[in-house]
Design a protein around this nucleic acid. Structure first.
Lengths: 226, 226
DNA sequence: CCTCCTTTGTTGGATTTCCAACATACATTC
DNA sequence: GAATGTATGTTGGAAATCCAACAAAGGAGG
């Protein structure tokens, strides 16, 4: 397990936890390592919840099959990131989504109950870890709220602008790069890629923004902060 | 403070906490009661975060003013419900939204740091409370995810059906009542009320559902569970 | 019963989006 | 350099949505 210290130290759950303590805590949490071949399920809809997963290696895709059998990708979890925590912390009995390994992957399996119960060792970092978990869930919460803000805009143009203005604010600069390609951005905002592309073109012609690939620059239109 | 025991005992934060313990915990958390006249701010954008609010009486509206000054209502908090917890638990410095009292209201102000730090009294319910908080934040998380699922559907009809199928699943019955009027449902799903009304009419004519006011009944179309 | 008011359903034209198809740009590989 | 593949931009007609305005259905209060 020690081989993954570098990964785990970058995991939000273990922020502020040193290597020695991490080893103790993993034991105290009943951590188990699992290897999943490419394409195989990490867990399936209907499986009991109550765990928190950490991707150590590879990548895991979380999917939901709707009523009509259409599959949609909810998230792709990279090494150091966690999954399943929202369902487990919310106290749902069984997972309402499934997850599959995109590549050959290794995941760490933590027991959510043991996380929330005072361990017999009374390890000093237990509280820190719960606070880390709470922070991670709360941050996901804010990310989801922001996404809803963007999606709630009426037109494609407004959705793009809401997203870009937020990015500029978050990154603290009118010039910034975004972490999505055009297709992923369109999916994220819930719009058509081609329509979005057309709107971005209009915004460029109108002098409201400039962009090249993932790089954007919002121009000062003189209307703000009067 | 004891006068609000009935309200607080229904608050998700205090689930499983008895009246005597609640009094001790409120003291231990540095709880303060505040009265806010109708229309006055509960907190304003830019105020320091780090608190968790509980509405004891009245109602509180959380709003966000976007870049262009347009105000949108993010939530209405009723007695027994909490607010501000996502921002405080996520560790943001200042509130990115504002809140106003819809009526003359009383709110309880809890210090988030004291919630997450082991109290000197080492009260036995402290851990329970942190778990309750985590559960509340995680549940909000799931609610937001579901909303995104609905809003991600392409057409108005698909959004309505996704919502209604989810409600039927949650309520465990093909016949159920929803907690929104038509306007609120349209706002929630991010569609036009009139367009939604028209689509609901079509679905009724097609025999896919029946409804009257807030009551809906999804008919078995024979296509499911083949 | 009547009026006022709110909620919900209906309609038609302007606007926007969707969709498929194609054009262009750029990187990779052979 | 040619061939290939991927990402992005562009276009036009079909479809859906938006919007405003009005119609219909109920509820509250006189």
């Amino acid at each position: 397990m020690e081989q993954f210290f570098a990964i785990l130290s970058r995991c939000s759950l273990f922020a502020g936890v040193g290597q020695e303590e991490m080893g103790l805590m993993l034991h105290c949490l009943g951590a188990r390592e699992r290897a999943i071949p490419k394409g195989e399920p990490v867990f399936l809809e209907g499986d009991p919840a109550g765990f928190i997963g950490v991707v150590l290696e590879g990548a895991v895709q979380v999917v939901r099959d709707d009523y009509y059998g259409t599959r949609s990708v909810l998230a792709v979890i990279q090494p150091g990131e966690i999954f399943g925590e929202a369902f487990s912390c919310a106290g749902v009995e069984t997972m309402p989504v499934s997850a599959f390994a995109l590549k050959g992957s290794k995941v760490l399996w933590l027991d959510c109950k043991r996380m929330l119960t005072v361990c017999s060792n009374a390890c000093q970092f237990h509280n820190r870890m719960v606070a880390n978990l709470l922070r991670a869930v709360a941050r996901k919460n804010l990310a989801l709220s922001r996404k809803i803000q963007f999606m709630s805009q009426k037109t494609t143009k407004e959705k793009i602008m809401a997203y870009l203005l937020d990015q500029a604010k978050v990154q603290g600069c009118a010039a910034f790069t975004i972490p999505h390609d055009r297709q992923a951005l369109a999916d994220f905002l819930g719009v058509e890629r081609s329509a979005m592309s057309a709107e971005i073109g209009k915004l460029k012609k109108a002098g409201i923004l400039d962009c090249k690939g993932p790089w954007f620059h919002l121009r000062d239109t003189g209307e703000e902060e009067l």
